Simulated assay, not measured.
Amino acid sequence: YSFKYVNGHPKNHCVGLPTVMAFGVLADVATGLPVLLSELTLTTALRTAATSVMVARRLARPDSRVMALIGNGAQSEFQALAFHHLLGIRELRLYDIDPTATAKLMRHLAGTPGLALTACTSVADAVRGADIVTTVTADKTNATILTPDLVEPGMHINGVGGDCPGKTELHPGVLAQARVVVEYEPQSRVEGDVQQMPADFPVTEFWRVLAGQAPGRQSPEQVTVFDSVGFALEDFSALRLLRDLSQQLGLGAPLDLIPPLADPKNLFAELGLSGQRQAA
């Protein structure tokens, strides 16, 4: 089993810190012994992008080649490269309210074979003609990054930034006209973009699509939304992969978090105070 510590502070860049910082622990179920302590800041970005592509393989049109990327901050490169290498995206249309963020993203991706980059002047400019729209913004507000008038038939929307109560990116009208897929419905209704919708608004948990219990994309014209919030199972899977890879590649180092006890029933002896008079 595992746990993850993660924060979300959009103003951290003002003090030289990342918006998201995370670490996690993987432990043996039989004994509770921690077997892996790992950073999860980079890993969170990687597993989020991987999950986005996994869902898009079932929900986006197979001929999707153009993606709009709205929000060009810390997670944008991971999303861009995942969709390029794993889904065949050939053109990225980029927009951020901060032009320096877009410039940073373009520097990092310049020279990527088979990937064209276009800096756009607005959300509307970026999404026009896009097959897939990824929104990955950081501001903790009920925002409306994408409105119904910008949605085109057959579009797949990968909504990543709406991930806590009071933080959304999609206009309710976008959700109302789309087939919405989530990771875990009880969590998504509190943290995802669907927090804006009535309690009976229909959503599909993605595991049902993978298991063949629910369809993926149903027609070329269908509008689909992945309301991504991040789910514990993704972090658990990432930690297991990190453990396996660290063992295979000889990475990592032992860390003395748990004292090696000569007698597991005698913890006090580890202080080396036996026989000494203790102050009251």
Rank of each mutant, 00 (worst) to 15 (best):
S38M: 01
F3D: 00
L117S: 08
G192C: 05
D149S: 02
L255G: 04
A232S: 15
G216R: 08
N142I: 14
Q248S: 12
M155D: 00
K11T: 12
E169T: 05
V20E: 08
Q247W: 03
A143K: 15
A103F: 02
F23P: 00
E221Y: 07
M106V: 14
I157Y: 00
T41C: 02
V55D: 06
L26W: 05
T31G: 05
T102K: 00
H13D: 09
L86W: 11
K11M: 12
D193G: 09
V223I: 15
F231I: 15
L245C: 08
E183V: 08
M106I: 13
D227Y: 13
A45I: 04
H108A: 14
G24V: 00
P254V: 01
T43Y: 10
G252Q: 03
M21Y: 03
V6P: 06
L92A: 01
F83D: 05
E169I: 07
R65F: 12
A138Y: 10
S274W: 11
G275E: 10
G24Q: 07
L242I: 14
I97V: 15
A124V: 04
T112A: 10
T19V: 06
R47M: 01
D200F: 05
I132A: 06
N7H: 00
P148K: 04
D227H: 12
S52V: 02
Q247R: 14
T121D: 15
G32M: 01
H108V: 14
L115P: 08
L242P: 03
L245H: 07
V151I: 04
T51K: 08
I157P: 00
L115N: 05
Q247L: 14
A130K: 07
T43K: 00
Q187H: 12
A49L: 08
S2V: 05
L86Q: 12
C164V: 09
A116K: 14
V151R: 06
L86R: 13
R277H: 11
D163R: 03
T168H: 05
L175G: 02
R243W: 14
E270K: 12
V127P: 04
A45H: 04
T44A: 06
G24D: 09
L59G: 12
T48G: 00
H9M: 03
K167R: 06
L251N: 07
